[in-house]
Each structure stands twice: as C-alpha cells, then as structure tokens.
Amino acid sequence: MVAPSDPADSPSLQQRAWSRYWASGALTSLPEDFQANYDGEIREFWRARCAPLADGAAVLDVCTGNGAVALLLAEALSDLGVGARIVALDRAEIRPELIRQRFPALARHVDSIRFVGGRPFEEAAFEDASQDLVTSQYGIEYCKPDAAAGQCARVLKPGGRLALLTHATDSAMRATMEQELEQYEVLADCGLFQRARDWRAGALDGDRFVRALGEIDAAVRRTSGAAASPLFAYVLGLTGQVGRWTTSQLQAQRKAVIDAVEQLEDGRSRLDQMLGVHRLLASPEQFAGHFEQAGLVLDEHGPLTYRGTHAVGHRFLFSKPGNDVSRG
C-alpha cells in the first residue's frame, strides 16, 4: 500500500487516474471482454432491478464511470415503458459524449441520463429520502465504506433499494497486482516520479533531468526480472530514449514526456486503489456490515457468474425499512 504521504495516494491523483481512463472512451471497466456494454448475466441482473419501479422513479447510479450500468437501467426501463429519472455520478471527470460517438445505438439512452462528474459520492448533496433505487457496479467499493453506506441510507426513500455488484476477489489476481505494484515501487525508489515532478515544477533543469533518466535507466536494468516485465520494458523505452536527448529535444517533446510519466503515475494509483478494494472485499459479510450498520437490511448476497462459468462479482441487495416504493 502506498504511504499516505506519497502523492500516488492523493485524492487529486486518484481522481486524475480514473478521469484519464474514462477519457479513453471505454464504456466498461473490462473493455477487452465486452465489445460494447455488459451483457449476459450482468445485463439481466440490472434489468431485474428495474422491474419493481414505477413511473417517476428516481434512480441514482454511483461511481458510474462512463455510465455502463446507468445505460443498462435506461434501456430496461425504456423496454418496460417506465419513465424514470436517472442520475449517473462519478468522482472522475467522465465522458458520456464519447460513448454517444462510439456507440450510436446507445445515444438516445445517453441523452436520457443526467451525468454528474467530478463529484465524490460521499460528498454529493442529494436530498434525503429522494431515491427509489441506488446502484453501483465495480465502484462503490472505492469510496470510504462508512461514508458511502451512510449516504445510501440517507438518500434512499423508505422501502427503497440498493443494488451493488462488487469486484470478485481472486487470490491469483491479487498476487499479480501486488507484484506489479512492487515494480512501481522500484520506479519510485529509483526516483522516476520525484525527478519528473521536480522537472515539471522547474526545480530541475532539462540537463539534470536527462542525466537523471539515464541513471534511472541503468538502475532499472539492474533490477531482477526487468527483462520479463512489460512495465519495466515501457519505462526503459522511455528512459532509454529521453536519456540520450539534448535539452532542446527534451523541450520540444515536453508534453509527450509529461504525458508518459503521468500515465505511469495514474497506473500506479489505480493499481493501489484496486488492491485496497481487494482487501476490503476479502470478507463480503464484513463489507455488507457497513451498510447494515447504516440502517439498511441485507436481503440477498452471493457471487454472480457470467456465462455460467466466470465469476464476475459479488452481488448485494439491500432495502431501507419503511413503506415499499415498488409497484407492489
């Protein structure tokens, strides 16, 4: 885990890391597995959440990214002939206009959703008891659990429902991520991130920055396993090239170098956050306990599989005690 004083753990960097990801135009957090939006059992899970809703229902999708779940909800409600108000919220700066451009078939659903970016859910000022359904997939677990649970309980109407699909914890995946984070820490120990920050701030001139990258290049090459690491290969491509530049060449390529280092910083931050999520979700019952302590009732939980074989997450269904807001 990155130390709290490390800039990689700062809220601004965490926000930038995900803003950059969604600015790529990705709709899901698994773009290599889904050509467009989530389908199969994931899609059906969210469609089922819409069945009890009546006209005029208020739906809030938190940690929405570019709106994958909000779009599944909008599609389902449209098919049911239910007019609902959907708000999609994320801490990152999100880019729904890119989804409209990349997936024209989704454009009408994109236009039916109110997207709110740059707003942490824990701090969002929605009215008390204003939401019939709150949803989140692969997102709310990145929030502060007690604060997020309290927000859910506060904004839900009596009888309202909270539906979550969280990451599926996998020990092999966690081991792989921990190994990669160790490689990022090697880069930090070599001074890559600090030297780049000093150069961007003007505390390190171009000549010294180029020399520093040459030294970092040599240090990384001496690291055990460097030849087999895609991360180290990317860094060595950068340091090997820039370390041979003149100051004028560096100045001419300043934006590209800053962008390359920021991508590394963002990757390190996202990885650190994901490892924190894996630790949080190691006990589903303990995770659910945050929401139960906030006053919600856990109605159902368990794994969700995709195409009957792949564990894609853990589902949690909660309700807020009080009058039922469903169709009945």
Rank of each mutant, 00 (worst) to 15 (best):
G117N: 08
E123T: 12
T64A: 12
A76H: 01
G150F: 07
L73Q: 04
D79E: 15
A125W: 10
P96F: 08
I113Y: 01
P104E: 00
E93D: 15
G56A: 07
G81K: 07
R85Y: 07
T135P: 04
P145E: 00
A163V: 10
L60C: 07
L164F: 05
T169L: 03
T64Q: 04
L80P: 03
D128E: 12
G65I: 00
D55P: 10
E93V: 15
F115T: 01
A168T: 05
P158C: 11
V155M: 13
L98E: 00
A58P: 04
Q131E: 13
D132N: 08
A125C: 14
F115Q: 02
D111P: 05
R114Q: 15
L53H: 01
V62M: 10
D111G: 07
H167K: 02
V116P: 03
V59W: 11
D55H: 15
E93C: 08
H167D: 03
R100G: 09
A70I: 00
T166A: 07
R85C: 08
G67L: 01
A92T: 06
R100E: 13
A51W: 08
S130C: 11
G83M: 08
L77D: 01
G65Q: 02
A54M: 14
A88S: 14
C63H: 11
S78Y: 09
G56P: 03
L60H: 09
I94G: 00
R102C: 06
E141V: 00
F115D: 02
I86A: 05
C63A: 15
G65H: 00
A84M: 12
D146Q: 09
D170K: 15
F121K: 13
R102P: 09
D146C: 03
L156N: 09
A168P: 07
T166F: 01
A163Q: 02
S130V: 10
S78F: 12
A54F: 12
A76V: 01
A153L: 04
T169I: 07
L162I: 14
D55R: 09
L133A: 11
L165E: 03
A129G: 11
T64N: 06
D90E: 10
L156I: 10
Q151E: 12
